[in-house]
Design a protein around this nucleic acid. Sequence first.
DNA 1: AATGAATGAGCATTCATTCAT
DNA 2: CATGAATGAATGCTCATTCAT
Lengths: 228, 228, 228, 228
Amino acid sequence: MAKVGRHREGEETREKVLAAARRLIAENGYSATSMSMISKAAGVQPASIYWAFESKEGLFAAVLESAAEDFFQANRQLGVSRPHSLRQYLNDLAEAIAAQPDFLRLLLILSTERKKGDPRILKAAQRIRDQSRASIEERLAPFVTAPTERERKAVLHDLSRLAIMLFDGTFVSMELEPTESSIKHLAQLVALAVEGAIAQLEKEKASPQKPAKQKKKRNERATEDSAV
Amino acid sequence: MAKVGRHREGEETREKVLAAARRLIAENGYSATSMSMISKAAGVQPASIYWAFESKEGLFAAVLESAAEDFFQANRQLGVSRPHSLRQYLNDLAEAIAAQPDFLRLLLILSTERKKGDPRILKAAQRIRDQSRASIEERLAPFVTAPTERERKAVLHDLSRLAIMLFDGTFVSMELEPTESSIKHLAQLVALAVEGAIAQLEKEKASPQKPAKQKKKRNERATEDSAV
Amino acid sequence: MAKVGRHREGEETREKVLAAARRLIAENGYSATSMSMISKAAGVQPASIYWAFESKEGLFAAVLESAAEDFFQANRQLGVSRPHSLRQYLNDLAEAIAAQPDFLRLLLILSTERKKGDPRILKAAQRIRDQSRASIEERLAPFVTAPTERERKAVLHDLSRLAIMLFDGTFVSMELEPTESSIKHLAQLVALAVEGAIAQLEKEKASPQKPAKQKKKRNERATEDSAV
Amino acid sequence: MAKVGRHREGEETREKVLAAARRLIAENGYSATSMSMISKAAGVQPASIYWAFESKEGLFAAVLESAAEDFFQANRQLGVSRPHSLRQYLNDLAEAIAAQPDFLRLLLILSTERKKGDPRILKAAQRIRDQSRASIEERLAPFVTAPTERERKAVLHDLSRLAIMLFDGTFVSMELEPTESSIKHLAQLVALAVEGAIAQLEKEKASPQKPAKQKKKRNERATEDSAV
DNA sequence: AATGAATGAGCATTCATTCAT
DNA sequence: CATGAATGAATGCTCATTCAT
């Protein structure tokens, strides 16, 4: 079913453009990357880009999608072959991010530059982030225990959120201080924090303080149950 | 010594432009904010902006500086009046960030859009970040103990870095999922992680595992001493 | 093989722009001629000019080239049909310059305004000037005799240079004192000078004075051999 | 009567600005030299320049005048101390031009860029040129003989014009091919041509050909009498 | 006389996009 | 599907000049 002729050409164009656009946008941001830059870098004429992607925004959406796909691809392979510890998993994840930073960078770009853009893109980005969290949650599950299922879920939710925050923070650190930060070191810090948080939760559950506060605001979810 | 006449006018212009530029750039990013947008929003003519700031990049630098100043102002007042716990401090800091998000947002914009820009701005941004870390380190100091001064410093260095990463991550979370995240909740997670990390470090120091690894790579700083 | 449709349009645009630019630049100089003036005069939008010529400097280069082409075209037809005297030739050349003054004017503009511009343009201008001199040399050849070929070449080189200088001077005169100067008259002066110079050279060769000086500086070319 | 205080300052400003403007305009042309460039180079603020010179055009006029003054100063000293031959005089003049090229350059700039400018400037420039020619005529006088005074005048007029043309041409040559041209060599060519022209005129007067043509157009001055 | 600040028009150039072939 | 050309609005910035102090 391999495409031939014109169809095949169209596919090639798409891929060349996607690759060039991803690289350029990840490097310079969305607004600072012009269609003509992409056109030149990809060796494809502007009009053809429009034929393939409709608009600059459409191209950006496609770039985001393709970067997410690659990221998940890399993510899915983590620990598939060998079973491993929590620390090992977090370490691998950090390295996966460092090896494939475009996706996170593009998300950051989306949030800083395209807040008001096509809501479909923003929706898609959120969906992707949710997916990430779900996958992390799944991996974290074996390491968490709680009396009730509801509590366990709340704890897991918080922990996955914490992990995401840590990875985001790691990434920002590396962006802003690229010389000073080694992924390995930062990954160790992440592991330390997550393990510490788990231990802390266990401890607090053993001897719950301030039970009064637990009843307060019901709409501030999760951590009310777990963190304090 | 209050300025009058033309001098006074100049100061006013600077302030109007700085305010408008900060708001617009924080909202739309650097490239997507045109000088004419700023000019209109500030009610100041383009040429006057150039008189006051030399270039768009110069204006951005000034905006960054002014946002940093405001941020540090807010930061300095934290816990001045009342002594407080680590948890309290981290909580306050989180709220300070949430109340004055422009500074972090601008740093993020700097890293995504202006990587190749005027190196002086990048240097300035780093200086500001270093300053932030130093201030956090200072606050964290009372809660950390270690046998030698050298170790103590390494631990503090790592912890401050961890805290920064967590705040960066918090901020990114709020940017990307503004509806789902409450600062209070995220601040609790941060506190949990930092406290957990401290506890973890104490525990590991009490019964050090894997002493073999400790001797390994000497050039991967700090955490070799403390985190593992 | 005539172009049609869009291709044909492109060619038309180029020509309209070239004509307008040549006229305006020759009249007002390079810097004083704005792209928008050219755009309006040519009835072509600014962006289209950039499509066709890349930059203002590129447009200037094209203008220069086209003016040179026209000049050489006119030059080539001189004396093709009828054989003629030296005086006749110089006269015709002067009239060709007067009839097609843009080329010299543009060269002058190049030298006064664009000294630091794109070196390729300067190179091209020199090439054109060399070509002019070569062509004049060729025409002058029949009127010059000398004992050795080397001497003959030196004399011809000097004479062509002299002629060029005279024509440049003629042109400047006409630019600065347009009312006072008739081409015919100035052309007569040019012919007088060139013929006089030739006669002078013959005479000096017949009875060379100051032979001592002839041996002196070897690196001051040509005239050492011929003029003195 | 030396000026003091504010007056003295004003004079200094004028001079600094004149020097900077002359250098910059001679180098880049009129339009390409902005008031702010001049202001920076002179270390004088724009507003002060306007106080001293009224407008950019006014400044240009002043620059032209001052350059002319310097040129005539240099010119006046030629051959004052020692009497000398025609060849010597022409040589000295060429060197004076080469040593003080700003004036000619500015005239050229005037003619290419400011054709439509303030007519007073153009008038002034012509006056200066006439003055130059008169001075050259004066120097050439001893070398020219003619039966009637009227003829002598006509011949002198033509010769001075020829000399000016040659010097203009020399100058253009040096501007366009600065590497290839030595002043000395070009000056030799000029002398050769002028001497040749004189000789030619003598010869023709001795045996006048084509007396028919002499009666023709009365309004094409001078050379009708002398050159043919 | 000089200064800091402003002004408004204009600059060369690029933008995202569209069109006819 | 791709191409060369066009489009019109916008870009960052500079211009000559003026103003109040």
